[in-house]
Amino acid sequence: MIEQFTQEMVQFIEVLPPLSIYLVFFVVAYIENVVPPIPGDVLVAFGGYLAAESVIGLVPVLLLTTIASVIGFMTMYWIGYKWGGVVERKQKGVRFLRFIPVEYLHKVRSWMEKWGLGVVLANRFLAGTRSVISLAAGLGNTPISKTILCSGVSSILWNGILLAFGWIVHENWRLIGEYLSVYGKIILTGIGVYIIIRIGIYYYKR
């Protein structure tokens, strides 16, 4: 389903004028932070290919996707600030946030208590955790200016890497999606192992 969506988006983008392409990348980069299943990373890599073909500019698409990513992050931050406590306590009344794994939110909050804004700084590189991290940041009421800065640095580095790879591999940009899939599985597995080890240590000490 994700591959089909990506293919349809690519076909849609390919027939658009440059200004409209920029708008699409902005919207995709924003929504990807709010609705995680959207394959925004793969489409950003496609943007690198389009930049190599001189269809769009590399710097403008980098800036636009970075700004959109930060706005998306801060949108979830605001939701976490306003309704995060309700979600964390598993209370009813916020139906559009029911997809959030509460246990995962608890774990991310513990990360932030330990590493602070470093988690926000690394958020773009932690596949599968971005929305939860932004929610946890809002729930923890992290300083807004510092949160925006850390989110911006993380976004510009990650998007820059994706665009660079898309530029380098050119028409083989779809391969990046396969690598991202493997990368995501490694990250999630590593997080799972870390959680299991911490739980084991906790019970061992008890």
Rank of each mutant, 00 (worst) to 15 (best):
Y104K: 12
S110R: 11
E88I: 13
Q91P: 04
S110M: 11
R95Q: 04
R95A: 12
V102G: 01
T75C: 05
K90H: 07
K90T: 11
F99D: 03
W78I: 09
R98S: 11
F96G: 04
R109E: 10
F73V: 09
K92G: 14
E103G: 03
G85V: 09
F73P: 02
R95C: 02
V108E: 03
R109P: 08
E88R: 13
P101W: 01
G85D: 10
H106M: 06
S110N: 09
M76R: 01
L97W: 05
R109T: 06
F99H: 04
L105C: 07
K107S: 10
W78C: 07
K90M: 07
W83L: 09
R109Q: 12
H106W: 13
G85P: 09
R98A: 08
G80Y: 00
F73S: 15
S110Q: 07
H106C: 02
G80Q: 04
K92E: 15
V86R: 15
V86A: 10
I100M: 04
F73A: 13
M74E: 08
G85M: 03
F96Y: 13
V102W: 02
V86L: 10
R98I: 00
I100H: 05
W78G: 12
L97R: 13
Q91G: 14
P101L: 01
Y77G: 05
K107T: 14
L105A: 05
V94T: 04
V87F: 08
F96K: 07
P101H: 10
G84S: 07
K82R: 15
E88Q: 13
R109M: 14
K92C: 06
E88N: 05
K90N: 13
M74S: 03
G85C: 02
M76K: 01
R109Y: 07
K107G: 00
Y77V: 05
I100T: 08
R98N: 13
K92W: 10
K92T: 15
R109I: 10
W83K: 08
W83H: 12
K90D: 13
F73L: 08
V108L: 10
K82H: 11
F99M: 05
M76Q: 05
T75I: 06
L105K: 01
R109G: 12
G80R: 03
F96W: 15
K92V: 15
I100D: 03
Y81H: 12
L105P: 07
V102S: 01
L97E: 08
R89W: 06
R98K: 15
V86W: 04
M76A: 05
G84D: 01
V108G: 00
E103M: 00
W78A: 14
R89K: 15
Y104D: 10
K92I: 14
Q91M: 14
V108A: 09
S110E: 15
P101A: 01
M76F: 04
K107D: 08
R109H: 03
V108K: 00
F96M: 14
V87N: 04
Y104G: 02
V94M: 07
Y77E: 06
T75R: 00
R109K: 15
H106F: 11
V94C: 12
V102N: 04
R89S: 13
R98G: 06
K92H: 14
H106P: 01
Y77H: 06
I100K: 01
V108Y: 00
L105E: 00
F96T: 06
